[in-house]
Write a protein that binds this DNA or RNA. Structure first.
Lengths: 160, 160
DNA sequence: GTTGACAGTTCTAAAAAAGAACTATATCGG
DNA sequence: CCGATATAGTTCTTTTTTAGAACTGTCAAC
């Protein structure tokens, strides 16, 4: 299957995976959230090849996750900044980090701690139901086809 | 950079990306959460090549996200079931789906709706601070090096 | 006028994925 | 017994992607 085909799937997960579902895109976004903005900064902090970096940045701009704005004339230089759409990826990034904190740390402990500026405490992210406020678990959720579902298809299933 | 190197990074995001940071792993996990368990089921619902499917399932088992358990003898047949470690990926999956619901739907609307069995309502996932219960935004979070941080390195940065 | 920063592009080799066919074990129906 | 079907893979060849390194062009500073 091609990446383009993923975008067309009637599945919000598949469509999102088409945008961020590769190694470098996620790592690039991590850098964006710690305020890395320039080509060479990304390159040196990630060690990604310049070719791929240029490619991924273009992709993220194309999808509206980043914008490329000039920060100086002569010579023209650009920065890559998260758009609102990009900032909205934060829960994804945080839930990925949190899972790693729980399941992938070595004996030394977490590489990073997160402080919530509002309450001044170190926290973990918790996912709750928008309606009743209770924490969510996979087994407490039931899925239904929505208006954008493919006809005559099991919920979530792809073609074939 | 090799995938193995990612696992070793002092970064919970990188380590998690080493496990789930490719297209097919995320799609396979989506299927797991709608109770797909068998090789041919995965294959026909995803359209992934059999080779890659075998490879990704092995990887997910190796990382302890899935277990491979026999459901019949003669001939031996196996199912792939989410472990607790795998079930804990749910917030990641849900936040990915939610972002797609907000930013990647077409005019027809969402492919899937989620009902919370506890409160019987259709919901969206919301990420909150474990300490104060307020919804989280990227700009309200400050990061600090934790005990597992690399020395003399900007928080979150990789080598080089 | 040489060096260095920045933001890329171009090239070749190596690795990964796609796509299709093949293998192995066993059941079922006649 | 014979052929068809089911399940869970493996093997093969071709195509696509990625890695790794070098190169380009513009400008500023020394």
């Amino acid at each position: 299957m091609k990446w383009d085909a993923l975008e067309k799937e009637p599945c919000s997960l598949a469509r999102t995976v088409a945008v961020i579902g590769d190694r470098w895109s996620l790592l690039i976004l991590r850098e964006c959230f710690v305020r890395v903005r320039r080509f060479d900064e990304f390159q040196s902090s990630l060690g990604v090849t310049r070719h791929l970096l240029a490619d991924r940045l273009k992709k993220l701009v194309r999808f509206g996750v980043l914008t490329r704005i000039p920060y100086q004339e002569t010579p023209k230089r650009y920065e890559y900044i998260l758009t609102q759409k990009g900032l909205d990826l934060y829960p994804i990034i945080m839930s990925i980090v949190h899972w790693g904190n729980i399941h992938m740390v070595d004996s030394r402990g977490r590489p990073l701690l997160h402080e919530h500026k509002n309450c001044k405490k170190m926290f973990d992210p918790v996912m709750i139901c928008s309606e009743c406020g209770e924490p969510l678990a996979a087994k407490e959720v039931h899925v239904h086809p929505g208006p954008g579902a493919r006809k005559s298809s099991r919920a979530g299933a792809m073609a074939r």
